[in-house]
């Protein structure tokens, strides 16, 4: 039973922490899709930029890891407001094809720029020593980083839950996701709501990119590499279904980790196979037609 237990706890720990980073990366996409119906394929670019900025702050200014991640989330969040004004507002009315083209274009531009500024290789960065240490959980010694990410993720999910369920902003957001025209008719400033939601989603992605750089290494192709997993999370969660997205992200993380751990050769292939079947089976989300 020992090896089984070791394997299971490895999968749980690594899978859940990975899933939590995926959640941070994709929750903004779930939100913008549900709210603005914009196919923002460039969303992962915000995560990449967030990671690069955080690592830059750590390496050049010597900022501590968590502070750098927070600062980067803030910077990217504010910066994304500008981009939303410049680019995305014109996309809200555009056709889905135009949205896809424009955001793929932005993704290419981001990747090319990251390469131009930082070079084509994975960015060298180290986690702080306290996160590299082993943490004894009683039954097993694990890397503190993974436990830290899980704890951080749980805290974040709680905060988001409070934000969405307990604040005015959250109530408006949910109302607008349910029925945009109705929300606008009841006097909600939908335009401002979009901007705030967009900035929030970008900031969360940047935070995820920063916190998760030891799991998802930072490189120019980052926006392309992790887009698929994000899209899988989004489509399985269903558009705008924030509640489901955390669970689905963790599920995807665990399945991915388990497949790679248990089937080292066929891993990625099996994972995509599973998700292809799931998305074809329920193209509008695992919970489509069941919620509410």
């Amino acid at each position: 039973m020992e090896p089984f237990f070791a394997g299971a706890s490895f999968i749980a720990l690594y899978g859940i922490s990975y899933g939590i980073v995926l959640f941070m990366l994709s929750v903004g996409l779930v939100l913008t899709l549900g709210l603005m119906r914009v196919v923002n394929l460039a969303h992962a670019a915000f995560a990449a930029i967030g990671g690069y900025v955080a690592v830059g702050l750590m390496n050049t200014l010597g900022m501590p890891f968590v502070a750098a991640a927070l600062a980067s989330a803030l910077l990217v969040g504010v910066g994304s407001l500008l981009i939303e004004r410049l680019v995305y507002t014109s996309l809200y009315q555009a056709s889905e094809l135009d949205q896809v083209l424009m955001t793929i274009g932005l993704m290419f531009l981001t990747t090319a720029s990251l390469n131009l500024v930082f070079g084509p290789d994975v960015v060298p960065a180290r986690l702080p020593a306290w996160l590299m240490q082993g943490l004894d959980l009683g039954f097993r010694k694990v890397q503190t980083y993974r436990v830290f990410v899980i704890a951080l993720g749980l805290a974040l999910i709680t905060l988001l839950w409070l934000l969405f369920e307990r604040t005015q902003f959250g109530a408006r957001l949910r109302a607008a996701v349910d029925n945009r025209s109705m929300a606008a008719a009841t006097g909600i400033d939908v335009r401002r709501l979009y901007s705030l939601a967009f900035a929030l989603g970008s900031a969360l992605a940047a935070f995820g990119g920063a916190i998760g750089f030891a799991m998802l290494p930072l490189e120019p192709l980052y926006p392309f590499k992790y887009l698929t997993l994000m899209l899988i999370v989004v489509s399985l969660a269903g558009m705008g279904n924030l509640r489901a997205s955390a669970g689905v992200a963790v599920l995807v993380g665990v399945v991915d980790t388990a497949a790679r751990y248990l089937l080292p050769v066929a891993g990625a292939f099996v994972v995509y196979g599973v998700f292809v079947v799931l998305t074809l089976w329920r193209p509008n989300g695992l919970f489509a037609g069941r919620v509410r």
């Binding site: 424009m102 793929i104 993704m107 531009l109 090319a112 131009l116 084509p120 120019p220």
Partner: peptide, 12 residues
Amino acid sequence: YHWMFIIGALLV
């Protein structure tokens, strides 16, 4: 990677 600037710009 520089080619990506072209594709990106073309798309935009």
